[in-house]
């Protein structure tokens, strides 16, 4: 039972674990330095997130041993990450562009569509819009 190395039981060596841990600490120091002491303007945010992403990759690959694991588990993680991305990006489609419809108050409606509407309908609409304000 000393060396049990059948599928799914890969032993990650101590050397690898120590190297990964050292890199993680180094990246933490790097992200603090770049964010707190060196101002790189608009790149601050992407850089910090890239470093965080890299750290997460290291943890997932070696500490969680996905590199040596059943590919199905990597697929599961991938699908989860894609879902989060969809959630974030599709919500931003709304929140980042909120109010992108051209102004729709009664004035603009009659400006763009007034020719096709008969006079009474337009007046009725403006009246009711006025009543709401």
């Amino acid at each position: 039972m000393a060396h049990d190395s059948h599928s799914g039981h890969h032993i990650v060596s101590q050397r690898v674990l120590i190297t990964v841990f050292a890199s993680l600490v180094a990246l933490t120091v790097l992200t603090v330095i770049t964010a707190q002491f060196v101002d790189i303007g608009v790149l601050n945010l992407p850089l910090a997130l890239s470093i965080a992403g890299l750290k997460a990759m290291l943890v997932v690959t070696f500490f969680m041993a996905l590199k040596y694991d059943n590919p199905m588990n990597s697929l599961i993680l991938g699908i989860g990450v894609i879902c989060v991305t969809v959630f974030l990006v599709f919500t931003l489609f709304d929140t980042a562009f909120r109010g992108d419809m051209p102004n729709v108050d009664s004035q603009t409606i009659s400006d763009t569509e007034g020719r096709n509407l008969n006079q009474e309908a337009r007046e009725a609409r403006e009246e009711s819009a006025g009543a709401q304000h």
Partner: peptide, 8 residues
Amino acid sequence: QSVVSSII
């Protein structure tokens, strides 16, 4: 919500 997202 934004019109862009409605269309998508």
